[in-house]
Structure formats: C-alpha cells, structure tokens
C-alpha cells in the first residue's frame, strides 16, 4: 500500500475500529462540514455491511448554514443511521446562560456546555471528531485518543504517551475520550480524498454569490439574522465559497471561482492563507485561544 491516501484512509479506519472495540457507548460528532462528512464515509468503509456502532451527534449552535443542516438530515436518512441533535439554544435557556454578544455573536464557546451535557445525557464514553492537527498549533500537540476528565478538560501536560498504533482508551466512569481519526490529514488531503472518493458536499463549499460584510481586516462575513449591520459597514456582493462550515457568525467566506472539487484543490494549492486564518475569527483572539478552549472542554 504505497499511496498516501490509502495509508491515511487505513489509519483512520483502524482508529474507528479501535473505538468500536474499546468503548461501550461511543458517538460520532457530525456537523455537516467536510471533515465530519469524510468521517462518515470512513465509517461506512469500516463497518458496512454492519450498522455503525455509534449514533451521529450534532451539537447545533443555531447559527448554521441551512445547506449544511439539509445535507446532514439527508445523509443520515440515506445511510439509515441514528442522528441525535442537541441545541445550544436549549442549553442557554435551561442553564440561564448569556448568549453571544457583540456584532458577531458567536456561540462557539457556548457549544461546549451543550456538548458536555449531551455526553452526560447519553453517557458517551468516546466522541469521534474530525479535528486535524494541521488546523492549529495546539491541535498539533493533541493525541489521537485524547482523554478528557469529567469536566471535559484537556490537560496538555498529562497526555498519555501514544506509541505505534496502540491506543489506550481505558477510562473511569464519567471521563471520556475524544478521538480524532483524521488527525494526520491536512486540508489538501481532505479535498484530495473527497475528489478520489467522489463524496458529495453541501453547496456552500462551492462558489456562489453572497451578500457579505467586508471587515476592516479584509474578511468576508456573511450577513444573516444574527449579525447587526451598522451604517459604517461595507456590505458587498461577492462570489464566495466556504473553507470551513462552523458558526455562521464567526466563519468567513473566501472569494472563489471554484465550481468543482478540482477547482477547489487548485485554489488551495495557490492560496497563501491558512484555513483557520482565513475563516475563523475565534482563533485570532489570542495566541493560545485554542489551547484555552480545549482546556475548557471544547472539541
């Protein structure tokens, strides 16, 4: 097996089967974004003709692109697997939390509450996610089996050694493990895989005309019901696509003429800005923004 995509695929499938073999109540976190769509594709390869040994779980921020939600429901239906949706809105109401504020009121931080509540509700002992090490430098330090305490916290100083392809998923009740099968994939690897496997994606990944606020930093923020448009804002119509599909209020679009996966691969090879740098407002807040969120239980 000499091709690198075959090797990455095999590694991811191996990790998923380890989850199936080691845990009693795992879950696969599925957002309708490209990385988690790849996870589902890999799970089909790992477990068919059997059913998935886990449900799909979506933590819905309420700030989602409708295209991603439609895709999510259609895919779950098509493959006949169970989908659990838990909404950040409900958590805010039940726990009397304060919703995101400001011009772009992101629920990225609030998501953690809903995720931890959901883990507790279903007693999930492992959550498979589509995070990749190339996204961010704190993620680059995280293990594939990332043990979290009962508060969901990641402690970078207490990570278990992880050697060869031997994964230790032993935990006590109340703890859980976040598992990242595509840790070693880059953005380009994901797109090359989508191309090779001919995986369908929500339409917002491809170029379309959209009304956006052009921020002073040069980011294109989608105008939507959650974002306040002020007189001094520069509102423009551009042909854009999304590189990541997160909370609408903090995920920027990039200008693009890419109609096909091949076009996207070409654009990525030419682009000089990283995926999160181009599209995420939440990571530019501070140098250790991601490390701190993860320590707090974030995905």
């Amino acid at each position: 097996m000499k091709d690198y995509l075959d090797q990455l695929e095999a590694e991811a499938i191996y990790i998923m089967r380890e989850v199936a073999g080691q845990f009693e109540r795992p879950a696969l976190l599925f957002s309708g974004g490209k990385d988690s769509i790849c996870l589902i594709h890999l799970a089909l390869k790992a477990f068919r003709p059997g059913k998935f040994p886990f449900p799909l779980v979506h933590i819905d921020t309420g700030h989602n692109f409708q295209e991603a939600l439609d895709y999510r429901d259609a895919l779950a239906e098509q493959i006949g697997e169970k989908l659990i949706v838990r909404k950040v809105e409900d958590t805010i109401r039940e726990r009397k939390l304060v919703d995101g504020k400001g011009k772009f009121p992101s629920r990225n931080g609030l998501q953690t509450y809903t995720l931890l509540d959901t883990i507790e509700e279903f007693e999930f002992d492992a959550c498979i996610g589509g995070a990749r090490r190339d996204e961010e430098k704190a993620r680059a330090k995280e293990r594939i089996f990332s043990v979290r305490d009962e508060f969901g916290q990641w402690d970078p100083k207490k990570q278990r050694p992880e050697l060869w392809n031997i994964y230790n998923g032993k935990i006590d009740k109340g703890e859980n493990v976040r598992v990242f099968p595509i840790s070693n994939w880059t953005e380009l690897d994901v797109w090359n895989y989508i191309k090779r496997e001919n995986i369908a994606l929500p339409s917002i990944y491809f170029t379309h005309e959209r009304e956006c606020i052009l921020t002073p930093q040069g980011q294109l923020m989608n105008t939507n019901e959650f974002v306040t448009i002020e007189p001094e804002d520069v509102v423009v119509k551009r042909n854009v696509r999304y590189r990541t599909v997160g909370d609408m209020t903090c995920t920027a679009a990039v200008e693009s003429t890419a109609y096909t996966v091949d076009d996207i691969i070409k654009e990525i090879k030419e682009t000089k800005i990283s995926e999160r740098g181009a599209t995420r407002m939440d990571d530019t807040l501070s140098e250790a923004a991601m490390e701190d969120r993860k320590k707090g239980g974030y995905f």
Binding site: Y4, R133, N184
Partner: peptide, 13 residues
Amino acid sequence: DVAYKYFVTDKRK
C-alpha cells in the same frame, strides 16, 4: 511534547 507538522511536495507527503 511532540508536535506534528505536515508538508507536501509533488512527490511525497
């Protein structure tokens, strides 16, 4: 701790 980094050429990842 170990940091994982990636780069790619036309020939290899």
